[in-house]
Design a binder for these strands. Structure first.
Lengths: 235, 235
DNA sequence: CCCGAAAGCTGATCTAGGTCATACCGCCCG
DNA sequence: CGGGCGGTATGACCTAGATCAGCTTTCGGG
C-alpha cells in the first residue's frame, strides 16, 4: 500500500495534532518520518527508551503489556488520529507499554528534539498534544479503576458497550460485528479466554446479547450498560 | 498556614511547570488561583467536568477511585511539582479520578482558557506539561500492567520498593518509616486490608522485611525487588 | 492515666476466576 | 476428501484472595 499524503488525509481536519495551516504542515512533515507497518509488526516495546511520539495516520495499532510468561493484556486499540508513546522530559524514563500494528498502518514518528523545536513555533499543536495525552491518561486511569474495583462481567460488558459506541450503534437489536477473537476480547478485559467465553454465554442466557457466528447482537442495550456500571448485582 | 510565594518555592527550579523567568512567572501567577486545602479536603471528583489543571505547590494529594460501595483504590500520591487533572480539548470529557488532600496542601489551579492563552506565549511550558502528563500516563499504565498481570504479593513488594526509592533508601537495613496505615497500603496495591497484612507477614517470614511498630525495615533489598518483578516464584 | 476507637493481626470459610482436559466445528490446504 | 489447526465451547477441578468474625495492640484526647 502506498503512503497517504497529509493533503488527502481524512482525519486531518478533526482537531487532531496535524490540523495545521499548509505552511505549518510542511514544517511538521519535515520534522517527522512517516512509515508503513505490516500487521503484527512491533513499533516499540515496554522498557525501551522514549525517543519521541507516534501519530497514527491510518490503520489500527494495539498497545499492550506482556509478562514473562506469554500472557498479554491489551490496553487499547488506537486508530487514526491517536498519539502513541510517552515523552517525559527526563529522557531516561522508559516506555510503559508495547505497541504493535494490527492492520497495515501508516504512522508518523516525531523525534523528541524535532518535535520540541516545532512546538516552539506552533504552541497550539502543543495544546493539542496535551489534550491527546489527557485523553490517553483518562483511558488508562479508567482501566485501573475497572481492574481494581469491578468484576469480570462488568468489565466485559463495558468493553462491548465501548465497541458498540465506537461504531455508533449501542442500540438493542444492532449487530456488532467484532473483528476480535475471544482471546483478544479476554486480553482487553483482563481475564482468561475461557472466562470470557463463559461470561458471554452468561450474558446470552440473560438475553442481554445474542451470539451469531463470530459476532454479537445487542439484545438489550440498557441492561448491557447497567451490567457495565453496576458492580455485582443479581445473578 | 500561610501561602508560600513562588519566589520562595523550593521546587521552582527543578524543571517543573513553574520554572520560569521572573516576568513569565508574574503572568503565570496571574493566570492561576492559588489556595490552601485542609487534610481530607476534596479537590475534585471522578465524573466532574474538566475545568483545568492543578499544580501541587506543597503538601501531598491522593488520586483515587471509589466505587458505589465505599471501597477505594489509590492510584497515586502526588507531591510538590506534580500536575493533577486532565485537560482534553473536548471539554465535555469527564475527569477519570478524584483527588483529596492528605496533608495540608497548597495548589495552584490553572483554568483551561487562561492556561491555553499562557501557553501561546510560553510554548516551553507546554512542553513541560507534555512531559508531566507523559509521566502520569506511564504511571497509570504500569499500574494497569501490575493489576492485570501480577499477583498481590508482587504488587505489594513493588509498592514498598517504590516508597523506599522515593525517600532514597532502597537498601538492606534501612528503616522506611511509612506514614500509611495498612488500609492505605492495601488501597494502593488493590487488595483487602487483611490480605495486605497477611502478605506483609509473609514477607517478614521470608526475612525480606522486618516490621517494627508501624514502620518497616528492609531486610533484603535484592529479594524485595525480585519479588516485585518476578511473578509468582518459590513459596 | 484511663478509656474508647481505630488500627493491627489471625483463623475459618467462601467464591470468582484460573487452569486443565476434552470435544466440536469450520476451514484451509495438501 | 481427509486430516490438521485455530477458534469456540463446557465440564471438573483448584487456588488466590475476599469476607467475616474475633481478638489484641496502639493511640489520641480528656
Amino acid at each position: 500500500m502506498r503512503k497517504i499524503q497529509c493533503e488527502a488525509c481524512p482525519v486531518r481536519h478533526q482537531g487532531g495534532i496535524c490540523d495545521l495551516s499548509p505552511e505549518a504542515l510542511d514544517e511538521f512533515r519535515a520534522a517527522g518520518i512517516t512509515a508503513i507497518y505490516k500487521p503484527r509488526q512491533v513499533l516499540f516495546t515496554e522498557g525501551s527508551p522514549t525517543a519521541g511520539l507516534y501519530l497514527v495516520c491510518h490503520g489500527l495499532v494495539k498497545l499492550y503489556h506482556s509478562d514473562r510468561f506469554g500472557r498479554d493484556h491489551i490496553l487499547e486499540v488506537a486508530g487514526p488520529g491517536a498519539v502513541l508513546g510517552e515523552l517525559p522530559l527526563n529522557g531516561d524514563q522508559r516506555l510503559s507499554v508495547s505497541a504493535e500494528a494490527i492492520t497495515e498502518s501508516q504512522l508518523c514518528f516525531l523525534q523528541r528534539d524535532r518535535l520540541v523545536a516545532f512546538l516552539q513555533k506552533q504552541p497550539m499543536t502543543g495544546v493539542r498534544l496535551i489534550a491527546a495525552l489527557s485523553a490517553e491518561l483518562a483511558l488508562a486511569r479508567r482501566k485501573v479503576r475497572d481492574l481494581a474495583l469491578k468484576g469480570a462481567e462488568s468489565r466485559l460488558a463495558g468493553l462491548l458497550v465501548q465497541l458498540a459506541r465506537a461504531t455508533g450503534d449501542l442500540e438493542s437489536g444492532k449487530r456488532l460485528q467484532l473483528r476480535y477473537t475471544r482471546r483478544e476480547l479476554a486480553e482487553m478485559v483482563g481475564v482468561s479466554t475461557e472466562t470470557a467465553i463463559r461470561l458471554l454465554a452468561k450474558l446470552k442466557k440473560k438475553h442481554i446479547i445474542a451470539i451469531e457466528r463470530r459476532d454479537i447482537v445487542i439484545a438489550d442495550a440498557d441492561k448491557l450498560s447497567r451490567v457495565a456500571n453496576y458492580d455485582e448485582a443479581e445473578t
